[in-house]
Design a binder for these strands. Structure first.
Length: 262
DNA sequence: GTATCCACAGCTCT
DNA sequence: CAGAGCTGTGGATA
């Protein structure tokens, strides 16, 4: 097929505004609205179409944040993959789908499943589960992501959000069992949802810094690559969107390091 | 010892 | 008002 695209290796930069399509007014802005971030030389939307095929990547950059976004699957293909996943994927239920927060037990507000190479495990909020063997569709999507990015993955976390009420709170992905040099590849199928990054130093009441959140919309068939060191400095969340009535399936492909430990 | 993680109620803001 | 966004809430885990 096509030659690999290695987004992180080509120098292409767009402002994060280029991909933040939602109205700026949604962001709480102080007087420094049009001040460009310090030490940020993003201004050239110029000759960046050096190679535009097959996937037009959009670079998303901020201080300590480095992502690439692209439409990986056309609508018909994405529709088909979504249907197949709806038939194939088996999600956790019962105790495995619960989490304890501030002393109370809740069902997580989405469905989750874990697939990957034999013997791999995934830990979510204290609960460790082993990966189910790859399904045909998950393998096919994994290989498509590898062809496009040049990265290989041995694990995928599947999250299904039945509608806009299902969501995921702000978090970073657990670095302990992840290969810190491997990007996380997030494939979205189904309903488009907002996706929000917030810098770790800009959270909470007495945040020491004012750093604008980075907001994206993850479209049907899209691929978002989160490159290091994004997960060190930025939390991300999938907030509630009450107007969204249709389901979304998200696949986050990762590389898990075998428990060699330091 | 200690830093991090999770989701929700309750509140404000628009 | 309704939706979105922010804050306070603690026991488990590494």
């Amino acid at each position: 097929m096509e030659s690999f695209l290695i987004p992180g290796q080509k120098k292409r930069s767009c402002t994060s505004d280029a991909i933040t399509r939602s109205p700026r007014k949604k962001i709480k802005l102080e007087k420094d609205e049009r001040m460009k971030e310090e030490k940020d030389e993003v201004d050239e939307d110029s000759a960046l179409a050096e190679f535009s095929l097959p996937v037009p990547w959009q670079k998303i950059k901020a201080e300590g944040l480095d992502c690439d976004y692209a439409l990986l699957f056309a609508k018909e293909e994405a529709d088909q993959l979504f249907k197949q996943l709806e038939n194939e994927v088996v999600y956790s239920t019962g105790e495995e789908a619960k989490v304890q927060v501030f002393g109370k037990v809740y069902s997580i507000p989405r469905k989750q499943a874990t697939y990957g190479d034999a013997g791999l495990t995934y830990t979510y909020s204290g609960v460790t589960r082993s990966a189910c063997p790859w399904t045909p569709t998950l393998e096919s999507i994994r290989d498509a992501v590898t062809k496009t990015t040049g990265q290989t993955f041995n694990f995928v976390l599947v999250n299904r959000y039945k509608d806009g009420q299902d969501h995921m709170g702000e978090h970073r992905d657990d670095e302990k069992e992840l290969d810190p040099l491997c990007p996380i590849a997030s494939v979205s199928l189904g309903a488009a949802r907002d996706f929000i990054f917030r810098h770790r130093d800009a959270r909470g009441k007495q945040s020491c810094r004012q750093i604008e959140p980075v907001k994206l919309e993850l479209a049907h068939g899209s691929l978002l690559l989160m490159n290091p060191p994004t997960n060190t400095f930025w939390y991300h969340s999938l907030p509630v969107r009450k107007k969204v009535l249709l389901p979304r399936i998200n696949l986050t492909f990762r590389r898990i390091v075998l428990a060699s430990k330091k």
